[in-house]
């Protein structure tokens, strides 16, 4: 493997990491801030991809982005409505919406499960045309995704410090406090999930357009991959200002992709991606828990050993 190969592999990894980091930022808002585990993420990611693809194919590359994000807002709104106003458990609400979205997504793609966008004008081809002839001409995907990530990070840092953002954070941080305050948790949950899902949809839209094809399975497992990235990011920069944490989350997404790319180079088959992301999530969540349990486990083991030894001694006495 020569230097050029490494460089191009690095670039693809970086692009993929950046585009997927938008979903991680969405979970940063819904999971870390609002404390809602939004399991509709997979379906919403595909929804963004399919809506974006259909609108782009019909000849509106910019509108495609807006439409995808708007579709994400609708999906988030329904997930939020189910769990705040209709008595559906929050995890179940996500799963239900996710299942429903499968049909919606195929319907959006006119009944097919695969859309080809080889000839479609998208935001990426527009950027490619804009950059042609300059030294950045090969970096158009990177630039678009970098731009999108920068905008979303800037928005989140601003938004989470406004009064509405503070209310959303308080809703996730201390529900008891919010219950007896003038904040309406129904409202903050709805707004939070709408905003988060618009980012998820944007992420799906950009991924499909950069790959020039949309597949109904493009979002499968995305929620676990994004959670793994989020937890990696938290391990780096889990404290400090919102900006620092948001950047940490983006880095987490990139690190995840880099690790995955290296694993692929070391002959790991591509289908292992999802197992790897599951294992990372398990380690990141249960690691700290088991560490906390360790003294108790140790104490119990020592106790058992001691009692066994004394039993043995008693028997020998007889």
């Amino acid at each position: 493997m020569n230097f050029i190969d490494v460089l191009s592999l690095g670039q693809t990894t970086l692009e993929l990491g950046l585009i997927c980091s938008l979903t991680v930022l969405a979970l940063f808002l819904s999971y870390t801030m609002l404390n809602v585990c939004d399991l509709s993420t997979d379906g919403c990611f595909t929804l963004g991809a399919s809506v974006g693809a259909i609108v782009a194919i019909s000849g509106h590359p910019y509108l495609a982005i807006v439409a995808a994000m708007a579709a994400g807002v609708c999906s988030g709104f329904i997930t939020a409505l189910l769990q705040t106003k209709m008595g559906v458990d929050s995890l179940l609400a996500g799963i239900i919406v996710n299942t429903g979205l499968y049909s919606v997504n195929i319907a959006v793609m006119n009944g097919s499960s695969l859309l080809n966008m080889n000839k479609t004008v998208t935001i990426f081809t527009k950027m490619k045309a804009l950059l042609s002839g300059t030294f950045l001409s090969g970096q158009y995907v990177l630039i678009v995704s970098l731009l999108a990530v920068a905008l979303v990070v800037a928005f989140l840092t601003f938004f989470l410090r406004t009064k509405l953002g503070l209310a959303i954070r308080a809703t996730g941080n201390n529900p008891d406090m919010v219950k007896s305050s003038s904040i309406d948790p129904v409202f903050t949950t709805i707004v939070g999930l709408c905003v988060a899902n618009s980012f998820t949809a944007l992420s799906g839209c950009l991924l499909s357009q950069s790959q020039k094809s949309t597949d109904i399975n493009i979002g499968t497992g995305m929620v676990t991959i994004a959670l793994a990235s989020l937890l990696i990011g938290n391990a780096f920069m889990g404290r400090g200002s919102i900006l620092k944490r948001a950047i940490g989350v983006v880095l987490g997404a990139i690190v995840f992709r880099v690790v995955y790319a290296i694993a692929l180079r070391l002959q790991m088959p591509a289908f292992m991606l999802k197992l790897v992301s599951s294992v990372i999530v398990i380690l990141a969540i249960s690691g700290p828990y088991l560490k906390k349990q360790y003294p108790i486990i140790k104490r119990v083991m020592q106790g058992r050993m001691a009692s066994k030894a004394s039993d043995k001694a008693a028997k020998e006495d007889k």
Binding site: T162, K163, N174
Partner: peptide, 23 residues
């Protein structure tokens, strides 16, 4: 019960002050 532990003192107070618009 009365304050959000993960947010700063300043942010908790801002939330309680309730002046200004949502943004």
């Amino acid at each position: 019960r009365g304050s959000a532990p993960g947010m700063s003192i300043e942010e908790n107070l801002a939330l309680a002050a309730g002046n200004g618009g949502w943004f």
